[in-house]
Amino acid sequence: MTRLTDIALRHATFLVFALVLLWFGLQAPGFLSPESIANIVKQAAFIGIAAIGMTFVLLTAGIDLSVGSVIYLAPLIAGFAMRDLGIGVGGGLVVAVVSGAFLGAINAAAIVGLRIIPFIVTLATLFAFRGFGAFLTGSQQFDFDADMRAFGLASIGPVPLPIVFFAGLAGLAHVVLTRTAFGRQIYAVGNDPEAARKAGLPVDWIRARVYVISGACAGLAGFVVIAQIGRLDAGFGEGREFDVIAAAVLGGASLFGGIGSALGAVVGATLIQTVRSGLVFTGVNLYLQPILMAGIIFLAVLIDSLRARRARQLKRRTIRPIDA
């Protein structure tokens, strides 16, 4: 019995996921069709790509509130570059990622260089980046050329491009986090920054890089989704930082650092998108959908905290054999 609860708690997100799929599947069988599922994953790529970057930040016990604005500003800069410099969509993609990384580097400089806490720095840049974007456009919508949309709707073989990026990034991030020195050192810094410093790890440099990564991922996420829409509204991405954080946390990342994985972020983002799509699919009132979303997130966080509490109980030493 307790073993069963343990297993259930450990794989809570998957369990919730399965239940959600089952529920919507029963409501509307078409929901589980391959096209519908592929569509969900495609839409999940947006939040998912940014959530992978956010996972790097959360692993160091940091937070990046500016992603919602980077998602807006980086593709915008790419848009200007494409229009004014005549670089193609591929060039635009690179510009989006690089400018995302640059915006992340601004966060990193303030956090590491000026020693201001991440919450405040990224809160400030959340305003500043969006303000700068609105300044560039005069708060107008920005329209991309037709080849941008063509790129967004393209696919490699049967796989739509957003999924290619999503999967590719997830794989890359997974390898970086689990198989490289940098990745393991991120976990070390999140677990105990003081010990990491004593061990001679370049703590500041590691911290700086995760914000650059988060910015780059947000830039990529923004570009990929804008490519599907073909235009960039002034309010695009506003409030998305919360979706991104929720996805990473649903995927098992801890806000206190040291715990989390790239694949978890993928699962978390896909779960959120599944619920969102499912609610649309089953025709739930538009205004009620966020409430159900919130319910799902609450459930996942609740299960996570129950799991943590259970882990603490198990850690408490048993001194003597437990008699039946």
């Binding site: 490289t180 010990a195 061990a199």
Partner: peptide, 25 residues
């Protein structure tokens, strides 16, 4: 102790200098 409780024994021993193969640990 200056150990990282979320990493393995081996990773703790090598945390400041992992031997690499093809760029990976």
């Amino acid at each position: 102790l200056n150990l990282f409780t979320n990493l393995s024994i081996a990773e703790n021993i090598f945390i400041d200098g992992f031997p690499r193969r093809f760029g990976l640990i």
